[in-house]
């Protein structure tokens, strides 16, 4: 039963991903990407990783994709994706490179996955449940002990990204003075 659900999900995920690639309309492409992210969250749930699944929906499908859609609407991108003649060869070689990458990966995976056994996650989670420790406790403890340096670094990264985004999106005249919306309308 679980495998039937899993393979259905697999097919839907690949379908949505192809939708991202093949849609000429940017908004449709973005909506397909939301579909991919929700399918991946369901996939994480099947692997019993509830916390990551919820974060996937809240942060990716909720925050990042809304930002994308917001910018698409803001720029009012009506034009559809086209391929001029001078990009045809780029397309061909890019496709060849991508497919080569996939076949190398598939070959490597075939070699790698020859001796896989039952996944160890179920046993770990059963052990945690026996000790009456929620998984989120273990995750958060790890986050602020073993991974404390990367955790603090991400806060600096986010601060720099916020300042950078404001500086990039700000409107300036030649002397570097801010142009306000009122001036532009007038």
């Amino acid at each position: 039963m679980e495998l039937i659900i899993y393979y259905t999900l697999f097919a839907i995920t690949v379908g949505f991903a192809l939708g991202v690639l093949l849609n000429k309309n940017t908004v449709k492409s973005a909506m397909s990407l939301v579909g991919v992210m929700i399918c991946l969250a369901a996939n994480f749930l099947l692997m019993r990783q509830e916390f990551v699944a919820f974060i996937q929906i809240i942060v990716y499908a909720g925050a990042i994709m809304v930002l994308f859609l917001f910018v698409i609407m803001l720029l009012n991108l009506r034009e559809r994706e086209t391929t001029p003649w001078y990009l045809r060869s780029t397309r061909f070689w890019g496709g060849a490179l991508g497919l080569t990458f996939f076949f190398v990966m598939a070959w490597g995976l075939q070699v790698f996955s020859a001796g896989t056994t039952e996944p160890a996650m179920a046993a770990v989670q059963a052990d945690l449940a026996a000790r009456n420790t929620p998984e989120i406790t273990v995750l958060s403890t790890k986050m602020i002990t073993h991974y404390i340096v990367p955790f603090l670094l991400t806060s600096v990264l986010l601060l720099v990204a916020v300042i950078g985004a404001i500086v990039m999106a700000r409107r300036q005249d030649e002397d570097g003075n801010e142009i306000l919306v009122e001036d532009e309308v007038a």
Binding site: E2, Y7, L21, L109, F112
Partner: peptide
């Protein structure tokens, strides 16, 4: 279920390839 693990790696490779394309 090791089937899920192996097919998920394949799915990951597929999504990455579609991203590259």
């Amino acid at each position: 279920m090791q089937e899920i693990f192996v097919s998920n790696l394949v799915l990951s490779a597929l999504l990455f390839t579609i991203g590259i394309l």
